[in-house]
């Protein structure tokens, strides 16, 4: 019973990671850059939920506000900070992304202060069944993220825009020649990623109500790790990596001997997987050409 409970909470945490990892992996696949600020978009989403919740008391309205704000923020970041660097060295883009991440964190600190905010999204209670006790919010997280992931997969596979995204990720130049507006596709990617980040922000606040300006930093890094483990650029890979990461974290947290080293264990798994399979579990191998 304990094992099943652990697995469910792991899958729930993992699905949150997967939502964040999807943002990383889509941007990496399409814009060929590591959006370091993605984790902090979650944090901004969290603050938006906090602001709306304290004004109206409706968590769904908070989610809506967070999604809208994060989409605008994500697109703005892309336009202002990353677009001028298209075609520059990956190192330059990465450093700019780190700068954006720091900027978001410290701006949030100036606006909302260092003290942590308690965000009560609403207690949904527990569900008991045959001696199994599960928080309903855990199940909601798991269910919502599964729906979102399936919707995203269908969107990418069957819509015109989705296929254009695949085309851009495979060969930007060729996609452009086929009449795809690459800038627009990159913008849409950032919008989708940021919207998913806002959802992840809500899920994280449902799990633990404390909100600080570093809410997204560690989950962001872990989700990126998950995306890399799954094979960066691959959407199923990000889901798999995220779920794997969540389950490992949940199991590790229940074993007292290794619980303090949970973060270290996750990162060691990353290093080992990258050494054995540098492209991740589902990643495709790409030949480097001169």
């Amino acid at each position: 019973m304990k094992l099943i409970e652990t697995l469910i909470s792991g899958l729930s945490m993992g699905s949150t990671y997967a939502m964040i990892a999807l943002g990383y992996t889509m941007v990496y696949g399409i814009a060929k850059m590591l959006n370091f600020a993605h984790g902090d978009v979650i944090m901004v989403g969290g603050y938006m939920i906090f602001v709306t919740l304290s004004a109206t008391g409706n968590p769904l309205l908070g989610l809506l506000a967070a999604v809208l704000f994060c989409v605008v923020l994500g697109v703005t970041i892309e336009k202002v900070a990353y677009k001028p660097l298209r075609g520059a060295s990956p190192l330059a883009v990465l450093i700019t992304a780190i700068g954006v991440s720091k900027l978001l964190q410290s701006t949030a600190q100036v606006v909302f202060g260092t003290a942590q905010k308690m965000v009560n999204v609403g207690d949904l209670g527990y569900l008991s069944w045959n001696g199994l006790t599960v928080q309903i919010s855990t199940l909601v997280t798991l269910g919502c993220s599964m729906v979102l992931m399936v919707a995203l997969s269908l969107f990418v596979k069957y819509t015109r825009t989705g296929r254009a995204m695949i085309a851009v990720s495979e060969d930007r130049g060729a996609a452009q020649l086929m009449g795809i507006n690459v800038n627009k596709i990159i913008m849409i990617t950032f919008a989708i990623g940021s919207a998913l980040a806002a959802f992840a922000g809500l899920f994280m606040l449902m799990k633990s109500p404390s909100l600080t300006n570093t809410l997204g930093a560690m989950p962001g890094i872990k989700a990126f790790t998950a995306a890399v483990i799954g094979g960066i650029g691959s959407i199923p890979g990000a889901m798999l990596g995220g779920l794997l990461m969540g389950v490992v974290e949940a199991i590790s947290l229940t074993v007292p001997a290794i619980a303090p080293y949970t973060d270290a264990i996750e990162f060691i798994i990353l290093i080992v997987i990258l050494l054995v399979r540098p492209t991740g579990i589902l990643g495709k191998k790409r030949r480097e050409k001169v």
Binding site: A88, A92, T96, G99, K102, V110
Partner: peptide, 27 residues
């Protein structure tokens, strides 16, 4: 207090502006 974080905003802006200035193909 919270003003100390202005320093971080300053660093972040320096980082972004300098990297874009030095690397943007358009510039």
């Amino acid at each position: 207090g919270d003003l100390a974080v202005l320093k971080d905003i300053f660093y972040a802006l320096i980082l972004i502006v300098l990297v874009i200035y030095n690397n943007a193909p358009a510039l």
